[in-house]
Design a binder for these strands. Sequence first.
DNA 1: GAATAACTGTTGCAAATGCCACAATATCCT
DNA 2: AGGATATTGTGGCATTTGCAACAGTTATTC
Lengths: 217, 217
Amino acid sequence: MEKRNIFDSIGEEAMAHILTCFKPYRRDFLAGETILTYEAGEPKRVEILESGCARLQILNEDGDIFLIERIMQGDVFGEPFALPLDRFVYVVTAETSCRVLFLDYDHIIRPCAKLCDHHSRIISDLFIMAAQKSQVLSLHISLLHQNTIRRKVLSYLSYASSICPKNKDGYFTIPMSLVDLSDYLNVDRSAMMREIRQLKEEGLIDGSRREFKVLTH
Amino acid sequence: MEKRNIFDSIGEEAMAHILTCFKPYRRDFLAGETILTYEAGEPKRVEILESGCARLQILNEDGDIFLIERIMQGDVFGEPFALPLDRFVYVVTAETSCRVLFLDYDHIIRPCAKLCDHHSRIISDLFIMAAQKSQVLSLHISLLHQNTIRRKVLSYLSYASSICPKNKDGYFTIPMSLVDLSDYLNVDRSAMMREIRQLKEEGLIDGSRREFKVLTH
DNA sequence: GAATAACTGTTGCAAATGCCACAATATCCT
DNA sequence: AGGATATTGTGGCATTTGCAACAGTTATTC
């Protein structure tokens, strides 16, 4: 299924209608900056990443921090998508410089009387984006549910090979560092490297560093 | 945050509008029946669980089956929320007898010209339900990311204690069997039982079978 | 109400994997 | 350009955890 980006789907000119209808707050962030943390309480805003690249992490009470989701251009994120739990803190940080739109949540769930033509369309786009987020999260769960490092890595690479652009030899570069990948798959990095090495020795995959090729599946 | 059920939020009389506007297909299922499996391709429908209780599982290529999500009354599910991957098959089965509404996906993403009054409201409810699904999934990921069985169990019980009704002594009953819980947390059941026993010995939790009480946190 | 199936609970043992410490390489920054 | 930093890659060792096998209890079914 083709990913439907809100900017693709509504186009530049309709973007003006979002701005008029929702009057979103817009802010730029530098790489490394914290965009927001999720606190308990009623959600106030929905955020859209207009440009750049960010990451959603959880911080547990022992101070460990885990990579939940990478947020790319056009993705939605924010409080309405995460359960506020006292044991966990959700943190969104900018990986690169980012531009973020902050939409008023009330405006989404309680459309005002003066409905502009595009309001309904915008909401339906938000629904699609929320559904896409579920896709990404359920993929992540599927990977975490694989019960060996081998299966996690193979499943991830199988997925990555289906979405990453390949060169003429069939090699692709995964969109995160191996450090982040081990975090994302929730496995020890050195153990993952060991498994990757074995997969290469067995001829199931090939490549070096972040570049891979899946030889069988 | 209070869970907003589509039936709560729009009420019985407005339900008629969904039926008029969306003309959903409605079907009953018996306990154990397969409601649907996700196949590759464009999503055609969004499903709403009108009554009963179901489960979303993934089946990997080795034939292992894992519990991703329990679907309760008022939850949305279906193809738009899951990435179709060749390595995984998504299966939704009825735990109890269920009634399911099948909404036309096109009708959501491409509102027809004859917009009824409630269409926009229904879409916004669907958005909220999709956001809730993300909450449930990100909670699941948070639990799976805990790197010991102990933390997984404690985190789950901490969450469960915040949503389950408690008796006067502070005990609550988790909404799934311990077999399902070990599956949900992706740990070996016997290892989980061992850990639960130790947590009881250490005085961190109390209870027996599915009934628990969190003594510290 | 008996028979059958599910679930809960326990233990020994082997192995996968996490943890640690380090080397080599690539990338970033001024 | 060169130093600092992040990333990739390797190996030894301890231990958590998975696996298998079983007993006791509760729930379901006919």
